[in-house]
Design a protein around this nucleic acid. Structure first.
Lengths: 131, 131
DNA sequence: CCGTATCCGGAGCGATACTG
DNA sequence: CAGTATCGCTCCGGATACGG
């Protein structure tokens, strides 16, 4: 298969009640780089190399994987210009752009509460490690 | 240490630009059970056993881990009643309750777009597998 | 420039057995 | 009832090397 594999594990997962289908989105949001890549793509069309510079620690492999998964979910379009050297452009689809709102909400909440969370952790860890 | 370990990997992670601290929240939202547990806790105070029944496939181990991490982040409180048999109650904190809004947004977006996403995937997979 | 193939360590999670 | 301890597997993700 391509790129190792793309993460198409055939999940049985027959439960799912009022929530359901959340898992799909959760999977994207959960993996390490998607959010950062989408944030950069929110700024407009980006090339592969460009993205790799914009997202600090990401490896070539993970950038490819992340983009492929986004493409598969219809969140990003991939346009190959048959030039030499090759040039590939990535752009958020309409659905992809609508997801940036969600990510914004995520970021806002994180920023608003990260002080409290950090303090809570510190306190918790002290209780554990100290005693 | 308790429960295997709680997931306190000392990350170097020196990057972080306009985003930053998102990782914390992303970690919670990313793991398999947190969202479902929080959804149930949004309904009010719940006991351990009760949660395990309410969240279909979760194992005792994963429920414990999930609750401990939430407790560490100051999102839930754990109250032990020294009765026999023991009785432990979990409840969302103020911060925890504010996170339910975020999860709601996540769920709404998922529901609103899962048709499109499913179709995109189907198309993508067909292009790959078919050709 | 834009990938893909491969190897590999470690985290996440499930199953199971045992304790207060 | 509410955990904890241990084992084992799977998959994610980093490093590296190679191809069009």
């Amino acid at each position: 298969m391509s790129v190792g594999h793309i993460g198409v594990t055939t999940e049985p997962e027959p439960s799912c009640e009022e929530d359901c289908g959340i898992r799909d989105v959760q999977d994207r949001l959960g993996d390490k780089w998607t959010v950062y890549v989408v944030v950069e793509l929110a700024g407009g069309i980006r090339r592969f190399r460009e993205l790799q510079r914009l997202v600090p620690g990401i490896s070539q492999r993970m950038l490819t994987l992340t983009l492929r998964r986004l493409e598969r979910d219809g969140l990003v379009t991939r346009t190959v210009h048959p030039t030499v050297p090759p040039q590939v452009e990535y752009e958020l689809t309409r659905t992809g752009r609508s997801m940036t709102g969600l990510i914004k909400a995520l970021a806002d909440w994180s920023l608003a509460h990260r002080g409290v969370i950090a303090e809570a952790r510190r306190a918790y860890d002290e209780r554990q490690g100290g005693a």
